[in-house]
Design a protein around this nucleic acid. Structure first.
Lengths: 339, 339
DNA sequence: TTGAAAGCGCTAACAT
DNA sequence: ATGTTAGCGCTTTCAA
């Protein structure tokens, strides 16, 4: 358990000793305090370089609870989903620019894992958190907000508390997809939903329903399938749909992974797209054009979502009392050849 | 700058006070020390629950430099590459099982970013690091190894130091791909390489060259293109290749992203695969079957790589003096219809 | 079984 | 301009 090999880290003390000054002076140098004699500063910097000293952030953080830890937490549901990867990239770029490092917690849609990670994040005394909680009533995250930890929610809000949110017009996006399907002439349009407790799934369902209604299409509950937002459930639910006595002529897939799963099933069955079955996805991927056939999809500006979220978070960290905002981004229908 | 809104965290002190015991006793309780009177323990636990106390890991770490911080660093070159995402998943699963959290550093192939992150990781006093450094001579990582920080390298080794490594038979994998191409009858086989300074790129090139030789095919240097391992360079280099006066009849793409980029170019030009141009990729993706056409590829066991790396790392953390190992995993040729 | 106290590395008064 | 010192929250001897 004990690491005997532990590598000795040079401490402020050693630097002070070697430079013949007090620890306070060294501290001032590393924090760029102006009140240091230029010569002293030079000497100290020299020693720092010699000793390859770098300040212990753990100690810094313990000391300064109210000052930046330069750590941001990111809590995402599923790193296998390219959408979240793009969001993460956006966050990461902004974080890096502002000298924040990221503690990344992928809870893989497992609530226990989410709990553990939130505990860790909290006790690491992160500066702020970007989270896509399991659902709007996530008590753990709500408590964190109440306690004053700067938080920005992504892709879904939080009910009962005031919190910054960055999301996308899910209902509108879904509507545009299903409307496109209907206008193209499809009559029996199915919806494969992600986890139904996630607000975005619900809003997409609403968009789907609204579009059917707007186009005078009947709602057939058998054509709505609920899954868990993962590839596997796309595969399975698409099979169920295609096995129906009266199968759909088009599928609206609730997210990335479901689309890919559904595609897999369709190809395994040797069906032609869009001839025998049309498909449209929520979430575009940069390789959608190379899919068979090039996929028509509702594009969410994922990178932008992450970027905005990180920017909001940093603003909030700097000024915790600023009023909360909801950033709502638009989706875009990318029409290719799958419907 | 100062966060006036700072949320008060309950400290050991408060718990001790409230429970009418000393801080030492509370500490013993949270660390499951056996030397605590059962009644006292119960009372303390009660108070802990009441106050929703959770120990401050920062303080714990500062105190116990030689004891687990339960933080692992992960340094990966490109989170947009699905290969690394899978590796990350493997790492993450093992880390979670062992109650480690991950500080994820995506350096996006930017050396300055890598430096910054390594500094942060070091000063966060992580327990260990899983890294895929820019190249074998990465001084920063080499220094870390020398200082005794437990490190496992992924996808590439480190020259001059003894370090645990998990990688894949790159040469053999590339050979099998190009050999398959040659045996299928392709004569002018191109190679689009990732960053040429990365050992795996070099080994794949070697496999490519060997396979050409083994099949009596001439080497045409014009058919070897070097890029930066990203989607964009797949797009561009494939264009160059197809624009050649004497273009290739097959392309071996050095990784995931390059394959997707090349595919994009081929589709934009309206060429048929494999009729007008065949393609085979290094790195399989779970949606390869849904590509147009279903992609033939060399599969690396990415999840397994991550899993093994994390396992090795945890072993090394527990016993820093154990001798280093190289885990070398096999690739697998997934034959579908792109060549 | 419990408590008192030192100290991990650092910063911010306060003093000089 | 610089040094002295207290203390962040915790664990761990050492004593009782």
């Amino acid at each position: 358990m004990i690491n005997e090999n532990v590598y000795k880290i040079v401490s402020l003390n050693k630097v002070a000793e070697r430079a013949g000054v007090s620890t306070a002076t060294v501290s001032r140098v590393i924090n760029n305090s102006p009140n240091v004699n230029p010569e002293t500063r030079l000497k100290v910097q020299q020693v720092i370089r010699e000793l390859k000293y770098s300040p212990n952030r753990v100690a810094q953080r313990l000391r300064n609870r109210n000052v930046s830890s330069n750590l941001l937490g990111v809590l995402i549901p599923d790193i296998q989903n390219p959408f979240y990867v793009e969001v993460l990239r956006g966050i990461e770029d902004v974080a890096y620019e502002n000298k924040y490092a990221l503690i990344m917690c992928n809870f893989a849609q497992d609530e226990r894992k989410e709990m553990l990670y939130l505990d860790i994040l909290q006790s690491e005394s992160i500066d702020g958190l970007i989270a896509a909680p399991t659902n709007e009533h996530d008590q753990k995250v709500i408590n964190l907000v109440r306690r004053g930890l700067p938080i920005v929610c992504v892709d879904r809000g939080l009910s009962g508390v005031d919190v910054d949110v960055v999301l996308v017009e899910n209902r509108v996006g879904a509507f545009s997809a299903v409307d496109h399907l209907a206008k193209t002439g499809y009559k029996r349009i199915a919806y494969i939903s992600g986890l139904p407790q996630i607000p975005s799934s619900q809003q997409r369902e609403k968009g789907y329903l609204d579009a059917l209604a707007a186009n005078g299409l009947a709602i057939d509950r058998n054509l709505i399938k609920y899954g868990d937002s993962r590839h596997e459930s796309g595969v399975k639910l698409c099979e169920e749909l295609l096995g129906l006595p009266d199968p759909p002529d088009a599928i609206f897939a609730g997210n990335n992974l479901i689309t890919l799963g559904a595609l897999e099933t369709i190809h395994k069955k040797g069906l032609t797209i869009p001839g025998q079955i049309a498909i449209i996805g929520f979430d575009d991927m940069y390789w959608s054009i190379s899919l068979n056939p090039p996929l028509t999809a509702v594009r969410q500006p994922a990178y932008e979502i992450g970027k905005r979220a990180a920017e909001q978070l940093i603003l909030r960290i700097k000024d915790p009392s600023r009023s909360t905002v909801s950033v709502i981004l638009k989706t875009e229908l990318m029409i290719r050849s799958s419907c």
